[in-house]
Amino acid sequence: MSTLARSAAEPRARFRDLLAAEWIKLWSLRSTPWACVITALAVVGFNAGTAYDTYRYWPADDPRHRAGFVRDGIALTHAFTANAALVLMLAAAAIGAAAVVGEYSSGLIRTTFAAVPARRSVMAAKVAVVTAVTTVLGAVIAVASFVVTQAILSGRGAGVPMSHPGAWRVLVASALLAPVCALTGMAIGTLARHMGITLVGAVALLLLLPLVFTDDRYWAAVVDHALPAGAWDRLVAVGYTPAAERWPSTVAGAWTVDAVWLLAAAALTVAGVHRRDQ
C-alpha cells in the first residue's frame, strides 16, 4: 500500500486520543506518582509543623490573644505557609518540566511527532493533562493543609472553618500555585529541552526573582507583583492593609497575574515546539 493510500485510510488523531496518550505517558514516568506523593507530604508537613509550633508555644490562656489571632488572619497564614509555598512551586515546576523534557531525553518525542505531525495539538494535550493533574494535586494539598493545621490550632481554640472570611481565597490561591508553576516548568522545558537547565531556570524565575525585586522601588514592586510568588502572597494576606506598602497590589490584580502566567506558559509550550528540530 502506498504512503498516500495508507495516510488516507488512517484517520487523524482526535484530541481526546491525544489526551489519553499524554495521560498514559505522564503516569508511565516513575517519577510522577512519587513526586506527587512526596510533594503532598512535604507541603502538608511544613504547614502542620508551623501550626504545631504555635500550638506548643501558645502563651498563657488569654482570650484577647486568641481573638486577635483569628481576627488578624494569622490562623489562615498557618493554613499555607510561605515555606510550604516555595516547596510546592519548585516541585510543581519539576513535574511540568519532566512531562516535556523526559520525552525529549528518551527520544520518544520523535516517535510521537512521527505518529502525530500536528505538534501543536500534541503539546496542547500535554498542557491540558499536566494542568488537570497539578490542579487536582494543588487542591488536595491545599485542603489537606487547611484541615490539618486548623485541627491543630483548634486545640487552642484558634482554628477556623472553611466558611471563615478569606479561607476560600487562601485555598484557591494556594491550589493554583501548582498548575501555574507546572506550566511555567513546561514552557521552560520546551525551550531548553534539558532538565538541569530547566530546573535552574525555574528556580531563578519562580524563587530567586521575588527575593531580588522588593517593594523599595516602584519598578521593583511592579515586577514583584507580576510574579507568581508575589500574586500568591497578596492573595493569602487576608488581614492585608494596603496603606502598609508604598506601592500596594490588589486582589484583582493578583488573580490576573495568575491567569496571565497560566495562559502565557501554555501558549509558549504549544507554540515553542512548532517548526523546531526535534
Rank of each mutant, 00 (worst) to 15 (best):
A99K: 01
L177I: 15
L4T: 15
S249P: 02
W23Y: 11
T54G: 01
A244L: 13
T32M: 13
A158V: 11
L205E: 00
T241Q: 15
A151L: 13
V44S: 04
P165H: 08
D62L: 04
Y240M: 11
W247F: 15
S145T: 11
A178L: 07
V147S: 03
V222C: 00
L206H: 08
A229G: 14
I188P: 07
S7C: 07
A187K: 02
R6T: 13
T111S: 15
A128K: 03
D277N: 06
S2N: 14
W58P: 01
L207S: 08
P33C: 03
G138H: 00
S7A: 12
T134L: 12
W58Q: 03
V222I: 10
P248N: 05
A243W: 03
S28V: 06
A118R: 14
S121C: 03
S154R: 06
A94Y: 13
K25T: 03
R246V: 12
T131A: 14
A21C: 01
G201P: 04
A75V: 04
A60G: 07
S28Q: 13
Y240D: 14
P179R: 09
A231F: 04
L41H: 02
G230W: 08
T111W: 09
S105W: 01
Y52W: 15
V116R: 00
A40L: 15
L18A: 04
G201T: 11
A144C: 09
V236W: 02
V70A: 09
T131R: 04
A244V: 08
F113H: 01
M162K: 05
N83P: 11
S2L: 08
A20S: 09
D277E: 13
A231N: 03
A125Y: 03
F46A: 10
H65Q: 11
V172N: 07
T131H: 02
L18D: 05
L206C: 05
P161L: 09
R110L: 12
D72W: 08
P33S: 08
A178V: 06
A259L: 15
A40H: 09
Y104K: 00
V136K: 03
A84C: 05
A93E: 11
A60Y: 00
T81K: 05
G96R: 06
Y57G: 10
Y104A: 00
L18H: 07
R16T: 15
A264R: 03
G45F: 09
R71A: 14
